[in-house]
Design a protein around this nucleic acid. Structure first.
Lengths: 205, 205
DNA sequence: CGTGCTACATAACGAACGTTAGATAGGTAT
DNA sequence: ATACCTATCTAACGTTCGTTATGTAGCACG
């Protein structure tokens, strides 16, 4: 029994390995551009064997996006709960968002680009949770605006601007690039805070 | 002869109609998720007939991205040439970029999302011109920073942040949405200028 | 020692894919 | 009238697709 548990953890179990390979493959070629045979080949398996772990190709995509949204919702919740006040909370949320899109770059990319490959039922589930995630940011902006520390003309628009800007990190970030995730996060936090912070006297332009 | 010209212009010629339909289809289902038969059906043609106008499915995708990059490079060139000084030029460039991604939303979206579906040779051509486009923005930031009117920690990073933020407009903009392209552009210009403009006395946070 | 479960493999299914070959209807030019 | 050109069609090609049915090696457990 204990031996079984250890063995299971020594190398990631098959379902986990499949998801990891699928993330890389879907990222590179897209969902429809990837075949079950190609995915299997990357894992040194036969395509039919994948069906022992997942009921369908669609289920693999959904599992990826579902887990990614788990990570986003859980992460942003922890990040904002750890500090107080709108500026600190927005900083924390932006910082988390950027770091997530650098560290879990490929799955994060898929969560934006492969929504169209989901079945209608799966899309509904994913979109509901993505909306929930976006509401966190809108909430932070609203609270800050009401408190007078933020100056945002339109909360929804500003939230989309912030999120798409940070989400974009997943499209161009490189492990071997010039900038570490932490540096990128710091700069993004700075830019975003500058653009939403209320200026007591006159606008800077 | 004159009659022929008139007839040609009365309704868009076939190649044009094919590109328009392909833009909508690729946007909705992705390149690999769209078939030549589905594209033909949208045009009330048979799939084989498409090959009279384009040599391959790949050629259709390339034509779309190529024309989109024409529009971007030409447009940003005109926009920045029309005004003087780094802040006005950055405003003009950002404004153009946002408006383009709202007005030509679907093709702009494809230019970011379907690069991976291009053959290596076509990808090289497209990327070279996309780099050229990005250099325009980096140039504007550099000049402004050297002139002391902008304060940007890292030109490349700031340029990517600005571009991905504005490019994101193509992912969520809706014709029937609450905000007109002009309003979005105005707000984006404001946010971006705020985040890069040098503050003479102390930082706002 | 055998029974059953886990995790794969082999082989095959029908459907859909991008693409090509060849025919044809309708207009234009000679 | 004839020859040609443009733009489409029908039919079919070989390939690949997601998926299913079935077989089997290795291990756990009684």
């Amino acid at each position: 029994m204990a031996a079984t548990v250890v063995a299971t953890h020594e190398r990631a179990d098959a379902a986990e390995r499949i998801l990891r390979a699928a993330i890389a493959l879907f990222r590179e070629r897209g969902y429809h551009g990837s075949s079950m045979r190609t995915l299997a080949r990357a894992l040194r398996m036969e395509a039919a064997s994948l069906y022992y772990h997942f009921a369908s190709k669609q289920d693999i995509l959904f599992a990826i996006l579902d887990r990614t949204l788990d990570g986003l919702l859980d992460g942003v919740g922890r990040a904002v709960a750890a500090v107080d006040g709108p500026p600190a909370r927005l900083r924390a949320a932006v910082r988390f968002h950027v770091l997530f899109h650098a560290h879990r770059q490929h799955e994060a990319f898929l969560s934006g680009s492969e929504l169209r490959s989901l079945t209608q039922a799966n899309l509904r589930l994913v979109l509901a949770r993505r909306d929930e995630y976006e509401r966190v940011f809108r909430g932070l902006l609203s609270v800050g605006a009401r408190a007078g520390v933020f100056q945002v003309g339109d909360v929804r628009l500003t939230a989309m601007a912030i999120l798409t800007m940070c989400t974009g990190v997943a499209t161009w970030f490189s492990d071997r690039g010039r900038l570490a995730p932490e540096s990128i996060a710091d700069r993004y936090v700075e830019m975003i805070l500058r653009s939403v912070t209320r200026h007591p006297k006159g606008s800077p332009s």
